[in-house]
Structures are given as structure tokens and as C-alpha cells.
């Protein structure tokens, strides 16, 4: 029997990370290919639903808060046309989503700051990827190479997820 699942008090809304998420999602929605400001509506609806779920008093329900936020951003990104800064904005939205995840009001304040070293790694990779895409000449061959690298990345991630002990550094037992 563990501590209760139901939370008695509604956790407060953390405005900073929520604002970042909303601004990035709204900007991505604006640049996405949806007509008549539908992208903006998708962003508002997704972020609003995520915020409401997160402050829900039901712990089980609050656990589903990342789903609408991520779904909204993913739909916008999938529909967004290639542009000068659209890719970078999509990546920034992903990072903002991670910061918002870390800033869970059900947990102690400052989660986003404590998660900063973790977020820095994808941010660095994103920067390298974006600068490579911007400055390197594109063609059929690089696309094939990129596809192969992506497939390799997926395989590596799948391997890491399947064997979390790779991250362990336990002392040897005699």
C-alpha cells in the first residue's frame, strides 16, 4: 500500500515553462501549412488541454498531460513547409516541451533548471543538425547518407532503451 494516488490540493501552474511551450507551439502553428489560423488554434487547444490535465487533482489523469501537448506540436511540425527558420523553430518547440515536462507542478520547484544539463545535450545536437542542414550543400547522395545515419540512430536508441543497464556503473561484486 503506497501513498494515495489522489492529490488533495490542485498544484499551481508554472507560468514560465508553460509560456515558452505556448509561444513556440503558437509560432510553429503560425508557420505550419494549416489554413485560416487553424495551426494557431491547434496550438492553443493542445497547450490548454495539457495545462488543464496537469493541474487535475487526479494523479492518473495528470500523467497524460504530455500527450495533447506533444500531439499538437507533432501535427503542426508534420504539416509545416520547409522554410528558413521553421526547422529551428520545430526543434526549439521540442526543447520547450522538454523544459515544460521538467517543470511539473506536482514536483519541487526548479525542475526545469535542474533539467538544464540534460536538455543541453539535445539542444547541442539540434544546433549541429541545423547548421549542417543550412550550410552544407544538399543533394541526393547526402540525403541517402542522412537516411542511413537516422536509421542507425534509431537502432542505437532502440538498443539503449532495451538495455538500460548500459547506463549502469555498479561496483563489481566478488
Amino acid at each position: 500500500m503506497t501513498t494515495p494516488v489522489r492529490r488533495s490540493a490542485i498544484p499551481p501552474v508554472r507560468l514560465m515553462s508553460l509560456s515558452l511551450l505556448f509561444v513556440s507551439a503558437a509560432a510553429l502553428g503560425y508557420l505550419s501549412g494549416f489554413p485560416d489560423g487553424l495551426g494557431l488554434l491547434v496550438a492553443i487547444a493542445a497547450v490548454l488541454l495539457a495545462a488543464v490535465l496537469r493541474v487535475s487533482s487526479d494523479h492518473d489523469l495528470a500523467a497524460y498531460a504530455p500527450v495533447p501537448a506533444l500531439a499538437g506540436i507533432a501535427v503542426e511540425a508534420a504539416a509545416a513547409p520547409v522554410g528558413f527558420g521553421t526547422e529551428l523553430l520545430a526543434g526549439f518547440a521540442g526543447l520547450c516541451f522538454l523544459a515544460w515536462l521538467a517543470d511539473d507542478p506536482a514536483r519541487p520547484v526548479g525542475g526545469d533548471l535542474r533539467a538544464l544539463p540534460t536538455i543541453m545535450l539535445p539542444a547541442l545536437a539540434l544546433g549541429i543538425a541545423w547548421s549542417s542542414a543550412l550550410f552544407l550543400p544538399a543533394g541526393a547522395v547526402p540525403l541517402g547518407v542522412a537516411g542511413g545515419l537516422l536509421a542507425l540512430t534509431l537502432a542505437a536508441v532502440a538498443f539503449l532503451v532495451g538495455s538500460p543497464s548500459v547506463f549502469d556503473r555498479e561496483e563489481a561484486r566478488s
Partner: peptide, 11 residues
Amino acid sequence: NPVPLFLGLPL
């Protein structure tokens, strides 16, 4: 389209 790829990378 590289836009979804850039969103997927941090995830």
C-alpha cells in the same frame, strides 16, 4: 521534409 525531423531529434 526536415521540419518533423528537427522536432523528433530532442525527443
